[in-house]
Simulated scan of single mutants.
Amino acid sequence: MPNTTPDAPLTGGSRDDDRLRDLALARSGLDRVAHERARTSILDELLGDPATRVVELRGERLPVRASAADDLALQLRAPVDSDRARLGLHLGRGPDGAAYLGVVSPEPAPEHASEPASKHGEEPGAEAPTWLTLRQAGEALGARDAGLFTTALALANWHATHRHCPRCGAETEPTQAGWVRRCGRDGSEHYPRTDPAVIMSVIDRDDRLLLGRGAHWPEGRFSVLAGFVEPGESFEAAVAREVAEEVGIRIADARYLGNQPWPFPSSLMVGYAATTSETDLRPDPAEIAEARWVTRMEYRDLLSSNTIRTPSGISIAKRLIEHWLGATVESVAGPSVVDR
């Protein structure tokens, strides 16, 4: 998490050592034990072991509850019989050897948060869970649970949209503990998809930050620019192309700052800081409703007056803005200005 001391630098070093650390969705505490996936009996073994810890995904939500430290923790449980009819995802093992299994349930998450704890393999009287999305819970989860949620959601999203073979159109079935789909007709194997995208702060000679509002975003929602990497393109080339396409300026350089998965549905966000000497913005109306340069003082004033909102707390976008600002958004204007 960023340093929350007001006005404290977030970079922690020289220009050559100021990469973004501890990104919310780039954390994990598990060994993925990929070698176990090829064992055809592995899911049966895990489902038959009461020591297996199960995370149940419903739609885009997992059950969470407050931890002893007033943070959030996933509500884990032992396997139940109905799990055998669900899509199983072998997510890895912890330092103690315990296995973690994701199961994708067809049941909808409760509309108003809670269900009896006993329904989830917990002792009667245990605290009932609240079903939250990754955007809602990710920042407050510990490293292990953030990694579990991110991986389970990314895999579930992939399975939901890749039920047919891209070669022949026949149905595919999950194999290798949820990490591969195999075509029942031609035997071809298909692997989880990850779509790389670049996201960048753009700074001019006066140290102003470029902010843009997406063409379909509501008034007041601003962020840094971003876009998908095209075939045959490097990350740095994608940064330059996206900035030119979206606001009509050329950058001078692009410096890598960090990356994290973004399973909405299947991206990997690669963060950069770019500089430019050009300031005449020409937004592409198909992509950008408005674009503007802001100084640090202007940005603080806009936040404090609730004129603009900052991107989600789990996003690289927020961290890129704070990297330039030199302070957390919350220390300037409080948590209410952060989109969830």
Rank of each mutant, 00 (worst) to 15 (best):
G92M: 08
C168M: 13
I199Q: 10
A38C: 11
K119Q: 15
R65D: 11
E45N: 01
D206F: 11
I288W: 00
E330M: 10
E56Q: 14
A317W: 00
R282F: 07
E290S: 14
P116W: 05
E127S: 14
G220P: 01
R135A: 14
R309P: 07
E60M: 12
R65H: 14
C183I: 15
P9R: 01
S336V: 06
A154Y: 05
A69K: 12
I42P: 05
L23N: 02
L25R: 05
G138M: 00
T279C: 15
D195A: 10
Y100Q: 10
L30Y: 06
S312Q: 15
V247K: 04
E298R: 03
P335W: 02
L46H: 08
H120R: 12
R292I: 02
R65W: 14
A51I: 01
V198N: 01
P50G: 09
R21T: 11
V337L: 04
D284Y: 04
A254M: 00
D253V: 06
S277P: 02
E246L: 08
A237K: 09
W217G: 03
L72V: 05
A73N: 00
S312C: 14
P283I: 04
T295D: 07
A24W: 01
V54L: 08
G248K: 03
N3Q: 06
G121V: 03
G258P: 03
R61Y: 09
P285E: 14
A215E: 08
P192G: 08
I288T: 05
G121R: 04
L281F: 15
T172W: 04
L74K: 09
W217V: 10
H190N: 12
P110K: 02
P265E: 12
V243F: 15
R208G: 15
S277I: 08
L209T: 03
E298W: 05
R167K: 08
F264Y: 11
Q136S: 10
D207H: 12
G214Y: 02
I249L: 09
R32E: 08
D207W: 13
E56L: 12
W324G: 07
E242T: 11
S105K: 04
D206W: 09
T133C: 07
T5Q: 13
A109V: 02
G187E: 04
A98G: 04
S28K: 00
